[in-house]
């Protein structure tokens, strides 16, 4: 894909990140996810909907003009939308890119859906979920040991 196609609708960025290959129609959901992360409150963010893509036909994309993406944000993004590509842009060029996979470990990002889990009762306790089945995207709470699907976990952001 040529850089010319990508800047058709939204401005090229000098430095920052592009979250690319977002399935069309889910861009706004991802934007809402971005906005849950306070660290990104003051950075310039642009949303592209229905961009043309060689791979997907149409796609959504989000540009974030931040120096770094917070680790918790990336875990969250890979949990909710595995398969998207994150590109680092330096001097208008893509310097690095990774396709996000379901995370192996979700570290102090999400609350446990089990109401009787100690992490929902002990002040200041962290949470931790391990991926136990990549195919079904099932995670296990390190504390109560219950298993949860990605959809169930994705809604329990802890802040």
């Amino acid at each position: 894909m040529s850089p010319a196609e990508k800047v058709l609708l939204i401005p090229k960025i000098e430095n920052g990140f592009v979250i690319d290959h977002i399935p069309t129609g889910t861009g706004i959901r991802i934007l809402n996810l971005v906005r849950q992360h306070r660290e990104l409150d003051t950075v310039v963010i642009t949303l592209g909907l229905h961009c043309t893509s060689r791979r997907l036909g149409r796609k959504d994309l989000i540009k974030i003009q931040a120096a770094e993406l917070p680790r918790r944000f990336l875990q969250h993004l890979s949990l909710v939308s595995p398969g998207v590509t994150v590109k680092r842009v330096r001097d208008f060029r893509v310097a690095e890119k990774v396709v996000l996979e379901a995370p192996e470990l979700i570290d102090d990002l999400l609350g446990c859906p089990n109401p009787n889990c100690i992490t929902n009762h002990e002040r200041g306790s962290g949470t931790c979920f391990h991926l136990v089945d990549r195919e079904t995207r099932t995670f296990r709470c390190n504390y109560c040991e219950r298993h949860f699907g990605q959809a169930e976990l994705g809604t329990t952001l802890k802040f």
Partner: peptide, 28 residues
């Protein structure tokens, strides 16, 4: 022994001593 699930794991993380779980809720 604790009624909340995961309490023994949390205790083991906090403590430098060996911790034995004698039952944590419906878990283990």
């Amino acid at each position: 022994r604790h009624p909340r699930e995961g309490a023994a794991r949390l205790a083991a993380e906090v403590s430098r001593l060996p911790v034995i779980n004698a039952g944590d809720g419906a878990n283990q």
